[in-house]
Amino acid sequence: MAAFSDLNILHMENVSTKEKLLMAIKLGYEVVAINNYVENVLVKDDKGKSKKEPSKVVEIPAPVKVHLTERDIGDLKVKGASLKQLSRFTTVLSDPGQWRRMQEDDIQAYDLLAVQPTTEKLFHMACTAIEIDIITFNIGDKLTYYLKPAPVSKAIERGVHFEIVYSEGFHSSSRRTFIANALRIMHVTHGKNVIISSGAREAMDVRGPYDVANLGLLIGLQEPQSKDAISTNSRACVLHANTRHSVKSVISVRSSSELKAEDQWTVEACRKEASEESGDDSSESAAEEADSSFDAARPESKRRRMDGV
């Protein structure tokens, strides 16, 4: 089974994000996404219409990565696991023009992109047209639009996931709305592509993975589906996010310098070949001088190289 993930740990200025991460580690989460929430990526002018001007551009904070020592991730190390930190950007989708702003590099630098649509039209746009990873809702308040099955099934096909944030349900005033909205999401998605995450504002908002799976039971998921919601579906969501950096999700190209040490073996065979080729070049002149013996293939390859390249 995939590792337990919490894809929504809110990064807030006055509350320590590290504490929330430590709590997540203690409870057994192996994949965590630190969420930067910006309500509006465009600046509104006085008349209420959004417009983007170079001088009034909203500053998007850089992706957050918390430094953790070996001691901090001790709970996971003991089980032989490690914490993977991802960065996530969430914004409220209240205007179609915001999508153009979201395609710029500072927002695309985040690992995961999430939107919270405010109208039915924008929900349809989020499901079918734009390249985002997660669709969230303001789950503590009444949903202002209907969730129609057609755009939802299109979203499921594309790999977009729907998020249920459970920390809203802990306030007794919003518990009913939380369950009602969660049930709505469940009815329309049939449990597919649903992820449940904490949306933790403080460390005590996070719950353990088995408890979150029980929450899934409460809102209508079957047992295997509710376990998937915090593990397999989150993993699928992250993989879908990776396709944004690939060419039509078929090929991805990176610079060799970005390759991690443990992945170097994947290009070793290529490198061996390249080094042998360059090795041949340098020894070419030496071979012409000295009459060293080559196998039958060598002179042929030298000839070809001079013709082809």
Binding site: F170, M204, R207, G208, D211
Partner: peptide
């Protein structure tokens, strides 16, 4: 299904339960 919502036990106020 109730366990995630528990925030206090006895006199201990700011807690939660982990299954």
């Amino acid at each position: 299904t109730t366990l995630p919502f528990i925030k206090k036990i006895g006199k201990q106020d700011n807690i939660f339960l982990n299954t």
